[in-house]
Write a protein that binds this DNA or RNA. Structure first.
Lengths: 205, 205
DNA sequence: TGCAAATTTAACCATTTAGTTAAACTATTT
DNA sequence: AAATAGTTTAACTAAATGGTTAAATTTGCA
């Protein structure tokens, strides 16, 4: 067994394991023992690096959020025509989710767990969407788009992409009689379906 | 204090309280003591009627599901033109959620908690959407609609309606700088925004 | 080699919580 | 009035779990 390769690698190993376990089980369902096991260490050492479950959770959770949100916003900030941007976002985001299918459930569960703390952690930076809205309005004025606010479009987009992952157990059961293969196929189709749906909704041709 | 008015009313009082608490806290977060308090009784009596938390939870949770799902499907089964139906659904469903804003978070959390059990409880009735799909295809053939499968339309619809409720803490923070009033306004706007969005996506005019 | 940090071992503490129990009490019914 | 079901009280058990502790051991490094 390779040991004592420096505190850093152990700490990151813990963070990785915690990441896995928290995403799988959520904050409430996760067990410190399980995180320790997954990291190949013991509970004492786990608490040697992170003195509480809350601290560990926060580092993992807000680490994910503060990495994910700017990434999402950045996707909206390119120079391309808005519809092309939207398609790029759908593709990018959906392919990310297909590789991390249980992540959305985790995020939407935990942001509702303690909204107070959430706003403490994230209050500092209020994002600025005026630029994006300007660009939309611009294309509306040119007759390329039907009018819509960024917030509504954002909600529509995220909702359509994310819901089949969050609702999978029920949707697969009810819409596809429990057939997992068909559901995977359904998920694969959505990228283009959503892109088309949005394009058709936003343009009059 | 009115007492001993028959086991029935106490039992339903418990179920109502459990409903409240479970929706607020989820299965994991709910405490039997809290349910007892909310029902105005004590833990002993609570276990007199429901011998375990699991049993109580299941009665509440699957009670909600088996009431909600047929209702949703029924909305799709009218005789009206499809687009009118969709608008009715958006209105109906969204106004229901505005009265029960934390319900979706609860449902989507719990269906992911134990998918095995979910499919045991719900496997019996596989819903039949062929009729609905036929009606869509019919209108497509007449040139009134662009082609889409019921499953995709359903996911789009539910996703757009539900996501602002599930994602509220984060969305309110990031899209509206934490302003709750503006977010409520946003929610009120969505009914017509979603209806328009879907109509525009599904028709070429 | 020797020191300091990293790691293990193993026992332990404190708290929370679902669930139990038994005895007493109250209302309802017959 | 007696029996029965509903209800309370209060103490208890058992298990899970986050967190601690202290001593021993290992490892990296100066």
């Amino acid at each position: 067994m390779i040991k004592a390769m420096g505190s850093d690698s152990t700490k990151t190993k813990i963070l990785q394991s915690a990441h896995q376990v928290f995403i799988r089980k959520g904050m409430d369902g996760a067990r410190m023992q399980e995180i320790a096991d997954e990291a190949g260490i013991n509970k004492a050492l786990l608490h040697y690096y992170f003195h509480s479950k809350d601290q560990l959770f926060n580092e993992v959770f807000y680490g994910i959020l503060s990495q994910m949100i700017p990434g999402l916003v950045a996707l909206f900030s390119g120079e391309k025509p808005f519809l092309e941007k939207v398609e790029a976002i759908v593709t990018e985001y959906d392919s990310y989710l297909s590789r991390n299918p249980i992540l959305p459930q985790f995020i939407f569960r935990e942001i509702n767990r303690d909204p107070e703390q959430l706003s403490k952690f994230m209050s500092d930076q209020g994002l600025d969407f005026d630029r994006i809205q300007e660009r939309i309005d611009n294309e509306v004025a040119q007759g390329h788009l039907r009018p819509i606010t960024f917030q509504h479009l954002f909600a529509n987009l995220i909702g359509m992409i994310v819901i089949p992952y969050i609702g999978r157990p029920l949707f697969q059961l009810k819409l596809f009689k429990g057939d997992a293969e068909k559901y995977d196929q359904f998920l694969r189709e959505r990228r283009v379906v959503i892109s088309n749906f949005i394009r058709q909704a936003l343009t009059k041709d």
